[in-house]
Design a protein around this nucleic acid. Structure first.
Lengths: 167, 167
DNA sequence: GCGCTGTTGTTTAACCTTCAAGGAGATGCC
DNA sequence: GGCATCTCCTTGAAGGTTAAACAACAGCGC
């Protein structure tokens, strides 16, 4: 990977520093804001809410643990803890996988769906107020492209994704 | 604050959803990446590293706790815990404030400065590889503007900041 | 079948963050 | 001065996250 930082570090220029600081500030403020909003209205952190959303969109409102972890960009360990908590709340239920006895499904319960239905509007509104209402259409487009690029760069590559002849 | 979500929620359009998902993915992947990088190379999470940076840039490498918390966008409580931890590592030291006996200074020690000097290049390189190397100059500029706007919208306003005649 | 390797999901303990509460000193007002 | 109130910072408990180790199983070659 040749990352060994030698004598010649490519420091950030003043302009790059401004961009980076702005990014850090925006991201931490926004995550804080949304976390508080959801903690107040739905009694759970943002990440947990995201899990319910993913399940709500999945066929039959169920996903294998690993698949859910992948979609939510969290570790399986973290997901395991999270689901345990959501299970206690009655929002999610675990089910065994008939095909693979190691496997577990996380299933969104009716109560979980109800919570989602009740709290989604407030959450969307919060996102709108904090982000979309403040950006021009061009900026929104730009933001999407930029984030897409950054995410792709960090995504653990699919096997053979860049070696199509191996598939 | 008329946020009461009535029957008429302004849902995100499909395009807005794509932008928002891309944002969430990028941000969580990036934060994870940097956290791991720093945990490995500097034995501390990203936020703690940020504290050392702020102190390193401050005059005399010292800041009042509240000021540091404000700059780092974290709560005083969190900062208090964090400084305790950094103090155990010998990277930061607390000092009393002569002017205000309630006050405390957080001071970057020589050892702390040394850690910073040693690990900064690797961190900058990680940020570069994940972000700046992948974006065009226009995109970098755009990112800065967008994040600036979002951050300002969430920033707790300074007293009278939008009422200049009151200052 | 048997063993090998990799996957799936959980667990433990250490660590970090949050929230609510509180001590101690400053500030202002009478 | 006396009192209320505010600010600065800390604390402890509850809860969330992480890394590492683990048990159970699947897939595969033999």
């Amino acid at each position: 990977m040749d990352t060994a930082p030698g004598r010649d570090t490519r420091w950030l220029t003043p302009e790059e520093q401004r961009v980076w600081r702005a990014y850090l500030h925006a991201v931490t403020l926004l995550e804080d804001h949304l976390d508080r909003q959801l903690q107040r209205d739905a009694d759970m952190p943002h990440v947990y809410y995201g899990l319910l959303v993913q399940l709500g969109e999945a066929p039959e409102r169920r996903l294998r643990m690993t698949e859910l972890a992948k979609q939510a960009k969290i570790t399986r360990s973290r997901l395991s803890h999270a689901v345990s908590r959501l299970e206690k709340n009655g929002w999610v239920r675990r089910e065994e996988c008939p095909d693979d006895k190691r496997g577990q499904f996380a299933v969104l319960t009716d109560a979980g769906y109800e919570v989602l239905r009740r709290t989604a509007p407030g959450h969307v509104e919060a996102v709108r107020q904090a982000v979309f209402d403040r950006l021009s259409p061009e900026q929104q487009k730009s933001l999407g492209e930029i984030m897409q690029i950054v995410a792709e760069g960090l995504q653990p590559k699919e096997a053979g994704a860049d070696l199509p002849w191996l598939r």
